[in-house]
Design a protein around this nucleic acid. Structure first.
Lengths: 138, 138
DNA sequence: TCGAACCCTCACATCGATGTGAGGGTCAAC
DNA sequence: GTTGACCCTCACATCGATGTGAGGGTTCGA
């Protein structure tokens, strides 16, 4: 498929598909006329890139760890340089931290919403399972 | 405390503390000489702002939902305008999605790392609990 | 053979979060 | 009273991810 179709199927502007290629995240083939040529695998790949980008990883890092993540069913050990493993470990921990942080905030929001909806006494109220009274998250 | 101390205690550049104020996320008092004046509460507040920022929310949104999250022990229902609740609900769902996405990616990394470390046969291998053979995440 | 709908490569613009520095006050300690 | 460590307000720079458009090929159907 060409860039237009991939763009539509992934909901990603053409501009960005070219950008990801420029950053070394994807390597599209070219047909004789110079058009980029993609196969099915790119649909998932682009989705994954966007996921990681959205997770806050910069393209620089994504480029490093993507080879470890995108093998469809086989893990190629030769791919794993020590640097890559270190990066991967570090990013895994970063992600874990971030996930915890997000979860705390999400729960604080959910808690607030529940409190507002569930118990609408006139002015103020405590949240349901409010041990120390702090719904706030970090 | 003044901006320097808050900066140090939150690990946040002065510049950003001023920026957050400019964006309406925090409202510092002023001492007679014009210096910003902060109390203890700002330490948590700034941490929370950074957490949300890091979660990918823009200051615009943070400004909206922060009032729902930062009450130390009391939830003030009057704060909850319908728009705010809608935003909050939307962002909560967004966060949930994002958390799932991050978790998938984190698990894919962890899985890969485990596979690389646990079982180092010469060339290729399958990941441990590899049902469909896809370690990839989106 | 013409036009619409693709594609290409630059290359500059924008946006939000930050960095950096100039120009200038405040204040405590020496 | 001067120095050093604070603080202030601009205001321009940077950075990564994106938007946008100019200038120009390719393909295909009317």
């Amino acid at each position: 498929m060409r860039i237009g179709e991939l763009s539509e199927r992934t909901g990603t502007p053409r501009r960005l598909l070219r950008y990801y290629e420029e950053q070394g995240l994807i390597a599209a083939g070219r047909s004789p006329n110079g058009y980029r040529e993609y196969d099915e695998r790119f649909v998932d790949r682009v989705a994954q890139i966007r996921g990681l980008l959205d997770a806050g990883l910069p393209t620089r890092i994504i480029k490093q760890i993507l080879p470890c993540l995108d093998k469809p069913r086989i893990i190629h050990f030769p791919d794993a340089t020590p640097e890559m493993l270190a990066t991967l470990e570090l990013e895994r921990d970063r992600l874990t931290e971030r996930i915890e942080c997000l979860t705390r905030n999400r729960d604080a929001m959910a808690e607030y919403l529940e409190a507002v909806r569930g118990d609408n006494r006139p002015d103020t109220a405590r949240t349901p399972g409010d041990r120390d009274g702090r719904a706030g998250a970090v």
